[in-house]
Design a protein around this nucleic acid. Structure first.
Length: 552
RNA sequence: UGGGGCGUGGCCAAGCGGUUAAGGCACCGGGUUUUGAUCCCGGCAUUCGGAGGUUCGAAUCCUCCCGCCCCAGCCA
């Protein structure tokens, strides 16, 4: 089924691939890869890349590999790797092969030996500080290392010794012999292997040298038969190097790199380094904190995979530095959940209402639709009784203009139930409202009241059967749209990003919903049963509020 | 006069020499509504960073200018 909203909007990469296929390039194959380093959890920025890579391959009947770019054992782990696999699968994509750059270490090494033999690579013994000095600056050319003209034999011997662990970290590095005067700094004899004696989570202690990104990535793409290597803009300057390595090592069938703009979202940060900082400093509660833009966090928050894919569809793919407003994301879940989430009533900040006209032990079962528009979602029964809870904010003694909820002496509709009138406000000695005494109009169930208009409708729960719940409300993690503009971005943390309503009540039908079940609490928003919920205590997260067009 | 990119309404974004310059988000009306939600209907760029030029015709081609982003890890 393809509707207008399912259609993938045009973008320059899709146009390019469409043309490639039409031109019979790569034999009409579209093979992509999503290549994260397992050094953190996936976030919305990765979702954009995942949707692009998997989506475009799917559209042209190609395939996509999930490849772990695991060439830096200092930062990588099994935990991150499994989290990444789970998140990609959760988003709804299926990879053709699960690949690891570390699986190519032997081949990569062989290619390196070949480059040395072709006099296109050499072992440099300058220190890292010296290499930086020799590299020159953005405006000045670099100069050649005194080790640049070692013989092939010497280089071969040294490289072999590096591999065998005969040298310490930092002593040598294998460099490509390109052009120290290049205006592109990436071409000034980039290092492709460094000595590192760290234990690798997959290859263990087998290697004493590890290949670097620029050398590894293009070759991994070529080894896997990738046709279109899509990455973010910051790698644009690396493309000449990507192509150089492939030209020197791959006779044919070379993949091509194309860059697109990374995702930026207001009021949050999308960089693994920053997210790691938030997690490790304890500013948030782990990688799946519902305030985080990580896929694990969004999942726990209650976002659906479809809503995230829809978000990626709506934001598009370009090369401009886009900063997306949060409402775009929020609107995606709302659109979906409005269709799919069953309605329930919940009172977050309760105040007791006593229906003085209702007999003490009278219980009346009321049938309510689970969805206002979709009868397939069925109905449920909620019992009406003498004592109820309503939202404290739904009553005002001194109502603001246009207030259409309950006021002293005024009437309001209890959703799917009766119209009530507030007759008396009971307060404690501090003046806090403790109870509202109301009378109901028995002739208003399922029908409009006679001879007058009641403008407001408010939600309620029956005190006799309400279930207590902790309801967690989330706000944006940062209080400014561009937290990175702050000297220290953590200074921009919103201190009120989480607020918990510990005395909330929900209607009984919510009680046995499994973790992950989503509801719309009428008039409030969409909520999900949190993983912390137990038989003894229900815990719910607000995914997103309802739109509120009331300017009062 | 280091190199590489980008500039279409508040935020995204289609557009690829001839269209009344798509669409979404946001916003502003108005209607329906037992959710101030949803839904519906209407509004929202005489103009595409600026100035010149080419052309019968320019957001689309050329020139210059302006603004913004990225790059000097033995990170990815």
């Amino acid at each position: 089924m393809t509707t207008e909203t399912d259609a993938i909007p045009a973008n320059f990469i899709r146009n390019m691939i469409e043309k490639d296929v039409a031109d019979n390039k790569h034999n009409k194959l579209v093979a992509t890869r999503f290549p994260p380093e397992p050094n953190g959890y996936l976030h919305l920025g990765h979702a954009k890349s995942i949707c692009l890579n998997f989506g475009i391959a799917e559209e042209f009947d190609g395939w996509t590999n999930l490849r772990f770019d695991d060439t830096n054992p200092d930062k990588e782990s099994e935990e991150y790797m499994s989290a990444i696999k789970r998140d990609v699968a959760w988003l709804g994509f299926t990879w053709k092969s699960l690949c690891y750059a570390s699986d190519y270490f032997d081949q990569l090494y062989d290619f390196a030996v070949g480059l040395v033999k072709d006099n296109l690579a050499y072992v440099d013994s300058l220190s890292s500080d010296e290499i930086r000095e020799y590299r020159g600056s953005l405006k000045e050319p670099g100069k050649e290392s005194p080790y640049r003209n070692r013989s092939v034999e010497q280089n071969l011997t040294l490289l072999n010794e590096m591999k065998n662990g005969e040298h310490d970290e930092g002593e040598h590095v294998l460099r490509l012999k390109i052009d120290m005067a290049s205006s592109n700094i990436n071409m000034r004899d980039p290092a492709i292997y460094r000595i590192k004696k760290t234990h690798h989570y997959r290859t263990g202690d087998k290697w004493n040298i590890y290949p670097l990104y620029d050398y590894t990535h293009c070759l991994s793409d070529a080894i896997e038969g990738i046709t279109h290597s899509l990455c973010t803009l910051e790698f644009e300057d690396h493309r000449p190097l990507y192509n150089w390595v492939l030209e020197k090592t791959q006779p044919e069938g070379r993949p091509e790199q194309t860059e697109f703009g990374p995702l930026n979202l207001e009021y949050t940060v999308l960089s693994k380094r920053k997210l790691i900082q938030l997690v490790q400093s304890g500013i948030v509660n782990g990688w799946d904190d519902p305030r985080l833009p990580t896929l694990a966090g969004l999942r726990r928050r209650g976002y659906t995979p479809d809503s995230i894919r829809e978000f990626c569809r709506r934001i598009g793919i370009t090369k401009s530095a886009a900063v997306i407003e949060m409402q775009v994301l929020e609107n995606c879940v709302r659109d979906e959940l409005n269709e799919t989430a069953e309605r329930r009533m919940a009172v977050l900040d309760p105040v007791k209402v006593v229906i003085t006209t209702w007999p003490q032990d009278n219980v009346e079962p009321l049938s309510m639709a689970n969805h206002p528009g979709n009868t397939d979602l069925g109905r449920r029964t909620v019992n009406f009784g003498r004592e109820l809870y309503i939202e404290r904010s739904d009553f005002e003694e001194v109502p603001p203009p246009k207030f259409k909820r309950l006021i002293s002496g005024g009437e309001v509709r209890l959703r799917s139930a009766y119209v009530i009138r507030c007759d008396e406000v009971i307060k404690d000695r501090d003046g806090n409202i403790t109870e509202l005494h109301c009378s109901h109009d028995p002739d208003t169930l399922g029908k409009k009241p006679e001879g007058r208009k009641v403008k407001g409708v408010i939600h309620w729960v029956n005190a006799a059967e309400a279930i207590a719940a902790d309801v967690r409300l989330y706000d944006r993690l940062f209080s400014r749209p561009d937290p990175l503009a702050e000297e220290d971005f953590t200074d921009a943390i919103n201190p009120e990003s989480l607020s918990v309503h510990e005395n909330a009540f929900v209607e009984p039908s919510v009680a046995d919903a499994a973790a992950g079940t989503r509801f719309q609490f009428e008039r409030q928003g969409y909520f999900v049963v949190d993983d912390d919920a137990t038989a003894a205590k229900l815990v719910m997260n607000r995914i997103v509020s309802l739109k509120d067009n009331w300017s009062g």
